[in-house]
């Protein structure tokens, strides 16, 4: 059903270096607010998509990931807007609360698999939205909460000020994306991540080889919950307002589409490629002045990717295929020579 390809050999260090360099140079290349904002938002989605993909690695297809963003977002928005906390502790608590929610929910619902799990998570996602909409005394309902910008970080003679420019927020997002990527990459490489494959590919067999299915599913779901919550907090504070409809079922579907289109073959590369490309594509389309064309093209791209890059290999596989063709061959050649 799913194929897992190890991309660690296929991503040369030079490419990673180039990406890091580009990220460092962003403020020099552009300080255009809307470009930065697209990059920031794709980064935020990338974190949520990585979370979704991690859960998918254990064979569970969650349609409620946006709910964890909402939980994280509302936690820090309520703490800052209603209770006068400053951003940083609220941000960290957002991850914790969301992770705790994921843990508790996961303990109950992860024993169910397949389409049943998807519908359960979808329902819980809607419940969260309705609660956010109706619990006016805390969430201000449909009017939404106005969220605070992060406080400045003093660094001696210099301070990082989030009010005067978007660049610091961009780097904040980059840091979180990088940290998430690092953690998820290690999980993928470790015994834990490899065991996920067993749980996903054949739960009955995995159980009879000594894997406690719930353990792996709950771990994946909780870790995803923590990072998705942090992403939700970043999302709420970047957009300065958080309303119930900003994080609902549609966003959950968006997360899953980004994951599948990006490719589930890798825990990090696929989600990042998928969310950056689809989000950027989507936001450039909104600038076209024809109603509906953005959805139409977005939908068409999704279907085309599924048709031509089947089984969730996704866009990241284009990359993989390229390197397999160009670099792999040389390696093989060398091996042959060595044997002779």
């Amino acid at each position: 059903m799913m194929t897992y390809i190890d991309y660690k050999d296929v991503v040369p260090k030079a490419v990673i270096g180039l990406v890091v360099l580009l990220i460092l140079l962003v403020p020099i290349i552009t300080t255009n607010e809307s470009t930065l904002s697209i990059l920031i938002l794709s980064g935020i989605w990338a974190i949520a998509v990585m979370g979704f993909t991690l859960v998918l690695r254990t064979g569970q297809f969650s349609l409620g990931q946006a709910a964890f963003m909402a939980i994280g977002g509302y936690t820090s928005a309520i703490l800052t807007a209603q209770m006068g906390w400053s951003f940083w502790p609220a941000f960290l608590l957002a991850g914790l609360v969301s992770g705790l929610a994921a843990f508790l929910v996961g303990m109950v619902v992860l024993r169910v698999g397949g389409i049943y799990f998807s519908i359960i998570t979808l329902s819980l996602c809607e419940v969260i939205r309705i609660v956010a909409q109706q619990w006016e005394s805390v969430t201000r309902g449909a009017r939404g909460l106005i969220t605070a910008q992060p406080n400045p970080i003093p660094l001696g003679f210099f301070e990082i000020n989030f009010f005067s420019s978007t660049v610091p927020y961009f780097y904040l997002t980059v840091c979180l994306v990088a940290f998430t990527a690092l953690v998820f990459w290690r999980i993928g490489e470790s015994r834990l991540g490899r065991s996920f494959a067993g749980v996903a590919l054949n739960p009955v067999l995995a159980e009879h080889q000594g894997m406690y299915l719930m353990k792996y599913r709950v771990i994946a779901f909780t870790v995803a919950g923590v990072f998705t919550g942090l992403a939700g907090s970043l999302y709420a504070h970047f957009l300065t307002v958080l309303t119930p409809t900003m994080l609902g079922l549609w966003q959950s579907i968006q997360i899953l589409i980004m994951s599948i289109v990006g490719g589930i073959g890798s825990l990090v590369g696929g989600p990042i490629i998928g969310s950056i490309l689809l989000y950027t594509f989507g936001s450039y389309l909104t600038r076209l002045d024809i109603y509906g064309i953005q959805q139409l093209l977005f939908g068409a791209v999704v279907v085309l990717v599924l048709l031509f890059l089947p089984k969730g290999t996704g866009l990241v596989d284009l990359w993989g295929r390229f390197w397999t063709k160009v670099i792999w061959r040389e390696k093989e050649f060398e091996m042959d020579e060595a044997e002779e």
């Binding site: 799913m2 897992y4 494959a197 067993g198 590919l201 054949n202 080889q209």
Partner: peptide, 14 residues
């Protein structure tokens, strides 16, 4: 009963 889509060595490692 196998782990679908894996190679022999991958199945063994899982």
């Amino acid at each position: 009963v196998l782990f679908e889509g894996t190679t022999v060595i991958e199945s063994m490692l899982i």
